[in-house]
Every structure is written in structure tokens, then in C-alpha cells.
Write a protein that binds this DNA or RNA. Structure first.
Lengths: 148, 148
DNA sequence: GTAAAATAGTTTCTAATGAAACTATTTTCG
DNA sequence: CGAAAATAGTTTCATTAGAAACTATTTTAC
């Protein structure tokens, strides 16, 4: 059982790291890092969104979100302004630069998931993404609950 | 399809990050970080192993392996010596400290995979780990092949 | 209405990681 | 044999990430 458990966990991080490398290689030529892609996706798909929503949508700490969005703002992919309703909150908007880039990033994302599930049947692919989502959300909720 | 592809990829990194947080919280009291656990597992399970084998077994870059093993050596979990057969190669050995810790780390690893797959049927659990391994290895081989 | 609590964001510190350049050995091959 | 290539490891640099301490606003409760 020891081998079993160590063996299973290592594939979680392996999949993550190799996916990041795949994305980085392909987005580098476009001038963005792979890690910024999900932020650009959300900004483009939502049009206007308070910053704290990035935390919950990506389940990433507010410190990391602050740093990533500050970087994206400096690089011209988003703009931010203090919310009219709540002086603590920042509204995030995509720039034209981000909107122009968006379809190409979507294409790269698709190529990544296609490569990942290459060799699986359509049924296995759906099953995999369904279970991946379920396990990720289980862990996420558990970790959050612990911090109370 | 855009929503689809961005949505799927984000769970890969979410599962990874939450898993690391889970492990870190539990191994912290034992004096090791979650990221070092796989290295200790391999050292304990193999007894004696050249350093470069850690790279292929974990699919981690040799730079990272060098740094992690240097840390583990300093902290007293492993010892290293130059191979008698090949002056470039380092043989890695677990210390008693690592061997004593090992069963507790295995226990924590099991609790993590149990938590992750909580709510899945036994069949889903097996399916998930099978597909996780398969996708991780697909990405790993592809990324390696590109670097030639 | 004000003090306390909650919330949104930033900053600092630290860890894990890969890329790439580097050193030192060993292997290959002409 | 000796030069070139391959291999094992280290080091430096940059990126991504969370924890925790911090500031500034808003909400809650008395």
C-alpha cells in the first residue's frame, strides 16, 4: 500500500508540471506565461469582474491573485479600477490586447487537453475530466474548511 | 469549447495545489515539507540509488533534484557518496531518521488519496488513478520528446 | 454613532520548480 | 591515443505559489 499511495500522488504533480511546461512553450511566443492564461481567460469571458472573484474561480490565494493581476496590468492585458459600490474592491477589465490574444490561447488550451487525453476513448476522456473536477473540488473544500 | 478547455485545465493545477497544501499541513509537524516526501519515499524504498534515477522516477529536472537532495542531506534524511563505478554519479542512501519517518509519511499519503477520492465508488477511484497515470505519462513523454 | 469584526487588496518572506549555463567525469570514435 | 560528444551534478536566475502580516474600507452589533 505504501508504494501504491506514493505512486498515485506523484502523478498529480507530474501532470501539473508537464502541463505547465507544455503551455509555457506555446504561449511564450505570444508573450505570456502559461500561468497567466487562466487569468486572461476569466477576464475576457467576464468582461468586468471584481478581483476577489478571481480567487474563488481559480481557487488561488488572494496574494497570488494580487501579484498576477498586477503583472497583467503592467503588461497591458487588463485594466483595474476601484469599484464604485465598494472602495475595497477592484474591478478588472480585459484590454483589446487580451481580447485579441484570447482565441489563440483557447486554441493552445485545447491542444493541451487533446494531447493529455490522446489515446483515451471519448468515454474515458469524459470520465477523467469529471473525476478530476470532482477530486479537485473535494480537496479544495476540505482545505478551505480546515482554515476556519 | 473555450470555457470547456479553460475549465478543465484549471482543475489539474487546483488538484495539485490543494494536495500540496494538505500534505504540507500534515508533514510540517514531522519537520519535512510535502514536496520532500516523494524523495524520502524513493530513498527508503530503494535503499541505494544513483541521483539521476530520482530524475526519471519523479520526472523532475536534475536541477530541482540536486537542490532537494542537497536539502535532505543537510537535514539528515539521506547521505550521498560518489559512485565507485562512475565518478560523475552520486549514490543516495536513506538514514535511520528517514527510515523511522517513512511509515508515518506513508500513512499521510494514504490519508491524502483517501480524502481526494472520498465520495467516489471503488471503481471510479481505480479508474481515476489509472487515467491520471496515463495522462501524466503521455504529457511527460511528449514534453521530453520535444526537447530533442 | 462608534467600536469590533469582516472583507479586499498588497507586500514580504519563503519554498518548489524549470531553464540554461556551467564543471567534471566518462564514453565514443576516428 | 586524443578530441568530441555524452552524461551527472551544481548553480544562477526567474516564475509561480502560499502564509502571514499589514493597510484600508465596509459591515455589524451594541
Amino acid at each position: 500500500m505504501g508504494q501504491q499511495s506514493s505512486g498515485e500522488l506523484k502523478y498529480v504533480s507530474m501532470l501539473h508540471r508537464k502541463t505547465q511546461i507544455f503551455l509555457n512553450e506555446r504561449t511564450k511566443a505570444l508573450g505570456v506565461s502559461g500561468a497567466k492564461v487562466p487569468f486572461i481567460f476569466i477576464a475576457c469571458e467576464c468582461g468586468k469582474l471584481p478581483q476577489y472573484q478571481f480567487c474563488s474561480m481559480l481557487d488561488i490565494s488572494k496574494g497570488t491573485v494580487a501579484k498576477m493581476l498586477a503583472g497583467l496590468e503592467k503588461e497591458g492585458y487588463i485594466t483595474r479600477s476601484i469599484s464604485a459600490q465598494d472602495g475595497r474592491s477592484m474591478d478588472v477589465f480585459p484590454t483589446q490586447k487580451a481580447l485579441d490574444l484570447y482565441p489563440r490561447l483557447v486554441e493552445i488550451g485545447c491542444r493541451c487537453t487533446d494531447k493529455m487525453t490522446e489515446g483515451l476513448t471519448e468515454e474515458e476522456r469524459e470520465q477523467f475530466f469529471r473525476l478530476l473536477k470532482k477530486t479537485a473540488l473535494t480537496m479544495s473544500r476540505f482545505v478551505e474548511a480546515e482554515q476556519d
